[in-house]
Amino acid sequence: MRRDNWLVHQLPMGMTDDDFFVRFVSIFQAVATTFLEDADTIESLVDPTVAPQPFLPWLGSWLGNSWIDSSLPDAAQRRLVRSLSAALGWRGTVFGLALVLEAITEAPVTIQETGVVRRHRDDGCPAPFARIQVRSTGWLDEGDFVELVRDELPVSVAFEVEVDGRRIWPA
């Protein structure tokens, strides 16, 4: 916490006797105080538990996702940003995909995958494949949900999405 007149108190004694000079320095102090207060709170701007609500979609975009809907409830946006940050290091894996999809659907997700890793030229190896089963697409429509899955999976992985027992991808 800064005391009042923190900048003026740093002036040499002779300068504080001049009322005009003190008022002049106070102008700069007022401007600098706003910058310092912003700098003091910078760590809370990137913490999804306490960041201002308008920052949450912006934080999501830092994590590579521009689809966090600002009309969602505050708690849902915070949960999504926390899940996205937790999943970032696991991106492209079953675990990472499950973290993201469970945050959106708010329900368990079943992912079955072949687990195959292969060189592009390998013949005889099946292509990587994942089957994703969810109860709902959460707040995303089906097309956006499929696009999200496509973004989260490696490009070489073919996939199928079932919502409540109904296959929505491939159509």
Rank of each mutant, 00 (worst) to 15 (best):
P128G: 00
G138L: 01
R119C: 13
R23Q: 12
E152R: 02
Q10V: 12
L72K: 07
L99A: 04
W90K: 08
Q53S: 13
I132F: 08
A98R: 15
F35C: 04
N5R: 15
G96R: 00
G14R: 01
A87N: 05
W90P: 02
G143I: 13
A130R: 09
H120F: 10
V146H: 08
S71F: 06
F24D: 07
M15I: 10
I68C: 01
Q29F: 01
S71Q: 10
E152W: 03
Q77S: 02
R118A: 12
R166K: 10
M15N: 05
E147N: 11
M15S: 05
V155I: 12
G14I: 12
Q10Y: 10
F21H: 02
S61A: 07
T105W: 09
A98G: 11
F28R: 00
D69H: 03
R2A: 13
L153P: 08
S156E: 15
N5S: 15
P170T: 00
R91S: 14
T137F: 07
A75P: 04
L45A: 10
V116G: 07
G96E: 04
D151Y: 01
R23K: 11
A76L: 11
G115F: 10
W62R: 14
D164T: 04
S156L: 15
F129W: 15
V8C: 01
I132K: 08
M1K: 10
A171M: 08
L140D: 05
R118Y: 03
T49M: 05
I68P: 03
S85V: 08
D47H: 00
R79H: 15
I27F: 06
G115E: 09
F20Y: 12
S66L: 07
W169Y: 14
L56R: 02
L11V: 03
R135Y: 10
D74I: 08
Q112K: 10
L88W: 15
T41I: 12
D151H: 01
M15A: 09
P12Y: 04
T34R: 03
V50E: 15
L101Y: 10
D47P: 00
F20Q: 10
S85F: 09
D123R: 14
Q29V: 02
L148F: 11
I111T: 06
L140C: 05
F35I: 04
I68W: 03
L148P: 06
V100G: 00
E37K: 05
V134P: 00
V134G: 01
V149N: 07
T49Y: 04
I104A: 02
